[in-house]
Nucleic acid binder design. Structure first.
Lengths: 164, 164
DNA sequence: CGGTATCCCCTAAGATACTG
DNA sequence: CAGTATCTTAGGGGATACCG
């Protein structure tokens, strides 16, 4: 309804605060959404973090990232390369050797990511507590509901026997 | 049934720089990974961004977030509530009214997220350029490979006719 | 070594319908 | 209005096999 008149694909202008929020995340043709998805990616973050230390070859990455498949590592690296976050250098030797490194832009992204990780580390205790509290509350409510149901049930039974 | 976070002793200490990287992302019983996943979530970010302005009711959120299903909004809100990022207030009126708001912790998260969004906005042009360059290069290489293949093919044909 | 191609499974998200 | 329950499907991701 309200967003019907916004046809220019790719353009992601921010004007009013309320409008801006709508734009930078709703439309997936918006760059922001795509980059966020890359960051959100299960493996991308880890690759970026590892490459921040030093450049690594394909197999080195594979060994360091426990549980990643060849396919996913290759995919992830190609995505990162395409976005200009990681550079790929082929050494025409035998056996072949390919080095991956963070580009300057990739490095700045890692800086930004760090602040996010820092946030999670600062708040992980609070979050764990919140979860525990929530689970306890939900559990309590469920039990209360069950008790109530049991009570209604017994009342119904009583009524039935009374009628008999 | 939802995913129960069974508390395996996922101690997530950081010692050496190299070790630390491995830990905070490889093991999914590690808190950081889970919180990152929440942040990365397609809808969570948008909900947080919208609630930062003011508290909203369920339907208000649904209307503002174009394309979200009832189910996903409910799920997202439950998760955020469980993590202590969003508060849920039920007004026992008729019709029922439920308000969602950012908790203080949720607000600080939004601050952190902002820096990420800022980064994407700063670099979206560079990324678009990198993608265009990559695609062009790949396209060029593919065409070159095809030309080469065609050439080899014609040479093979020539050799065949020479033998005849 | 450093990939790509193929198959296949399983989950997460969408659509739909129903309830307090 | 504010959800939950149920069904169904697309695609993310693993395993495997094969090329340069």
């Amino acid at each position: 309804m309200e967003d019907g008149t916004f046809a220019s694909p790719g353009y992601c202008g921010d004007t009013a605060a309320d409008e801006a929020v709508q734009q930078w995340d709703t439309r997936n043709d918006c760059e922001v959404r795509q980059i966020l998805d890359r960051i959100a990616d299960k493996w991308s973050l880890l690759v970026i973090a590892l490459l921040d230390q030093r450049s690594l070859r394909f197999t080195e990455l594979r060994r360091r990232i426990d549980g990643i498949s060849q396919r996913m590592l290759a995919r992830t690296l190609r995505h990162l390369e395409r976005d200009g976050l990681v550079s790929r250098t082929v050494h025409p030797t035998v056996p072949p050797r390919v080095d991956y490194a963070l580009t300057p832009m990739g490095a700045t992204l890692h800086e930004t990511i760090r602040s996010l990780v820092a946030w999670t580390e600062e708040h992980q205790n609070a979050i764990a507590a919140a979860r525990a509290a929530y689970d306890a509350r939900v559990q309590g409510e469920k039990e209360a509901a069950e008790r109530e149901a049991a009570e209604r049930d017994s009342i119904a039974r009583e009524a039935l026997t009374a009628l008999r």
